[in-house]
Computed example of a mutant assay.
Amino acid sequence: MANAEEEIKKDLEKIDKLADGGTEGLENRNGSLDPELIRLIERGVNAIETLGDRYIAYKEKSDEYAKEVELRKYKYWTIAVVLVTALAVVLLGGVLYLANVKVLSSEGVSFLLGTIAGYLFSVFGGLISSALKSKESEA
């Protein structure tokens, strides 16, 4: 562990010297850069390329995931709207049928229609408010 930390410190010192514009002490006898420094720079470039590739792959996956989530939301919204509409038609049709057969009085019909309408308003209101909350949390 200590060796790795020492190597990192040495590498950082060399990079600092190079970043300061000075290549003194980094050249060998022939006047060319030290091969160790070249390997160090290559390792740094490879590390940056690897991190860049990982970041690009992450962004592509997150974009695909966001598209899939939007498609599923649309699918579930359409299913919910169709089911609630079918429920409304069945309930209202049943109440009106019972009123037509004279099983229910006009007061009973009014009460049931009001109850069903209130139920539908609350269901649609809950669906709409949950959709708005999810849009606000995404932004």
Score class of each variant (00 low, 15 high):
105 S>P: 01
96 L>W: 06
95 V>F: 09
130 S>V: 08
51 L>K: 10
28 N>I: 15
3 N>C: 02
48 I>G: 04
17 K>W: 05
3 N>D: 15
96 L>I: 08
53 D>N: 11
64 E>C: 00
3 N>P: 02
72 R>Q: 11
27 E>T: 11
46 N>S: 12
117 A>P: 00
50 T>R: 13
101 V>Y: 06
28 N>S: 03
30 N>G: 07
62 S>M: 15
128 I>K: 09
123 V>R: 00
68 E>F: 10
78 T>N: 12
27 E>K: 15
87 L>P: 00
109 V>L: 13
122 S>Y: 13
139 A>N: 14
103 V>T: 13
42 E>A: 14
24 E>S: 12
119 Y>W: 05
66 A>S: 12
80 A>T: 11
80 A>V: 06
31 G>C: 03
109 V>H: 01
94 G>N: 14
85 T>Y: 04
9 K>H: 04
15 I>Y: 05
118 G>D: 01
125 G>H: 07
62 S>E: 14
27 E>I: 04
83 L>T: 11
79 I>Y: 04
85 T>R: 01
58 Y>S: 10
42 E>D: 07
133 K>A: 10
27 E>N: 11
132 L>R: 15
41 I>Q: 10
46 N>D: 14
130 S>Q: 12
39 R>V: 02
70 E>M: 04
79 I>G: 01
4 A>D: 06
84 V>D: 04
28 N>Y: 04
105 S>K: 11
56 I>V: 13
12 L>K: 13
10 K>W: 09
